[in-house]
Design a protein around this nucleic acid. Sequence first.
DNA 1: GCGACAG
DNA 2: ATCTTGTCGC
Length: 264
Amino acid sequence: MRVVRPEFRPAPGLDTDAMASRQRDIAAVADFADDHGLTPERIGLDEPPGEQAALGGATTSGEAAPVVVGVDQAFRDDEVSVSAAVAIRDGAVIERAAGNAPLDVPYVPGLLAFREGSAVIDALSSLSVEPDLLVVDGSGRIHYRQAGLATHVGVLFDVPAVGVAKSLLCGTPAAALADPLPAGTRVAIEADDSMDAPDGAVVGYALQSRQYPTPETRHINPLYVSPGHRVSAGTAADLVEATCTQYKLPAPTRLADQYAADLT
DNA sequence: GCGACAG
DNA sequence: ATCTTGTCGC
């Protein structure tokens, strides 16, 4: 796939203010409403990935199943950012792509895309299939300037994207998350005064994709799902939930995780 | 000033 | 993200 907004490429030379400014520009053109043809049913990940699947990628309804691409990051020698992208259709891996970039920007919460974005772009640029959805590790709209890594990448390629984070960057849960949530539960994450989004706006969801039978003794933490681009908050939660077939994390994310580890 | 803080 | 085995409890 190809970058369609090259002006938003993460440039290493920028100072903190310039990076933040670029993020506001990205948020201004980002689309946090549904603009895609996806449904949880069409994702077609009922079977664990890696199994047999129809060669043409046909669903039970006869239409071509959407291509979902998981993206994950790793480091090599503390100086190279490695990105792994794994494309899945109908529960089967159809393509993998790797990307690299020098690791010259330090990690700063809120500026992750400027540290690891270039490697992600490198990986996605070499994908020959056209993704219908990107599942990016990290935040999307749950971000100080509504432009987390998932939003940044989604806008760069103008492709539907969602962000899946394992911890909350910012925002306030609409209900307390202190007690373990039952599987399938979702709690809205609302914008607070640390964010550009209007106060109280639902910028994502805490999604309890898995839970132990007896959460009192031992419990699993929720995922934090947010719109990247062209997907609404509610639909993002629906789609991500459909990809969590067997474990807490989405299958595309797990596969990308694995591939990234192999590349390191 | 102190704490919080995606990967 | 990464350094890292066993161990506790579903």
